[in-house]
Design a protein around this nucleic acid. Structure first.
Lengths: 223, 223
DNA sequence: TCATAATTAGGGGAAAACACTTAATTTATA
DNA sequence: TATAAATTAAGTGTTTTCCCCTAATTATGA
């Protein structure tokens, strides 16, 4: 009996590449793939045979892997989600685990590791390597005694914070942002400060990089 | 007779995926792959059989695709370089063409388009689709009557300015940058100001976006 | 060699960002 | 409905950025 999986990644070539790699293994069967979180959720809902495992990229347009995972696990708590990304950052991993991802794969892993991860998740329900374990420990020690959703939400950016972050990336000053959002300069400063704290960066440069890295803003807005 | 190619991309899974896709085609033969520009140049120099075509990602750690292409075409002017990236921006494309890339492929292209591009480059020496053609025209009309390296260099940032820009992106303050480069705070301020003037942006946020957009810094340095 | 560009450095000042504090009001949700 | 979270706002002060100005030294190239 083969393991039914689904893939989500915004790069078609990457998706097709994964298909080509995984198709070599008889015990792995790819049901469908999606180019972003929204497509993934839609395809999942309409699929007759549900996948046991979903491998999803975190950085995607429209809806990213984090949001998609939340929605999916809400409706299908038995589906195992493997997070896939190029960026191996502590907050990311901690958040993903907190949301319910059962494994974390770097994009520069070997195909062998990917297959191993899929099989481990299939048999054991999860797979964390030493690195991820290390991050979990460090991440957990930071604020909470254990990883939970409240700890996760503390790090998440609120709607307003995202608005402010986007305007910061568009090179607006605090005063200008206040005028745009019809709120006080002071309020914007609070949001800025919270952004620095939550994203754990030092200044505007860090915020912009964080925003781009986490796909919170799109390049298209600048050109 | 098959087409000998080499691949450069920082993500192992992507590289292996490409191998899997391209290995299905008998007329395409992958000689070697590399995880960054430096490795690519090294492997190329030591390779007994040189590839006719190199497919390289632009955004890579250590040495990016732009630098690598420059170096490679300097020594091996007959090698055809196909630029591969997730970002389809005007300046990027224009620069790559100016440097000498003979084709430009988006990472969310279909495998079929990639194979077609390889074959077209092999037979015709180049392959530009309508989109890229459009960008070339727009890019050319902007400042120069034709695309050439001198036009490109006029807008280029100096070596020192690039150093400062990189450190700004790494969240260092003016004073800190001065200490790192063993120059006065004042001098760094001059470079900062020139950066703002040359890139035509408003503040640090604009500089960071410019740097990322133009591939002057790599994400990997931040994590 | 003569001009141009790059790099260096400084004075002075205004604006913006950042750091620390407290706290009221609204909103979501358990 | 009680509790938590988000959003709002402000005081006060320091640091950093950004802008104006001048100007010497060092490369680079025509």
């Amino acid at each position: 009996m083969s393991i039914n999986i689904a893939i989500a990644d915004d790069e078609l070539l990457f998706r097709q590449g994964l298909r080509a790699i995984l198709s070599k293994h008889d015990d792995i069967n790819i049901l469908f793939d999606a180019s972003d979180g929204k497509e993934l959720v839609d395809e999942l809902n309409t699929a007759k045979v549900k996948p046991e495992i979903i491998i999803t990229d975190l950085k995607m347009p429209e809806m990213d892997g984090v949001q998609a995972t939340k929605i999916i696990l809400d409706t299908y708590p038995d589906i195992k989600v493997i997070a896939l990304t190029s960026y191996f950052t502590k907050p990311f991993i901690v958040n993903m685990i907190a949301i319910g991802a059962v494994a974390y794969l770097a994009k520069n892993s070997t195909p062998a590791l990917m297959v191993k991860t899929i099989r481990e998740v299939h048999t054991n329900g999860f797979y964390y390597d030493e690195k991820v374990f290390g991050y979990i420990k460090n991440g957990a020690n930071k604020r909470n005694t254990s990883i939970n959703l409240s700890g996760f939400n503390q790090n998440m950016l609120s709607k307003r914070e995202l608005e402010v972050l986007e305007l910061i990336c568009q090179q607006f000053t605090t005063v200008e942002i206040g005028e745009k959002l019809y709120i006080s300069r002071r309020t914007v400063e609070v949001h800025r400060n919270n952004l620095l704290l939550k994203t754990d960066v030092k200044n505007v440069a860090g915020l912009v990089i964080y925003a781009i890295q986490h796909n919170l803003v799109t390049f298209d807005k600048f050109y």
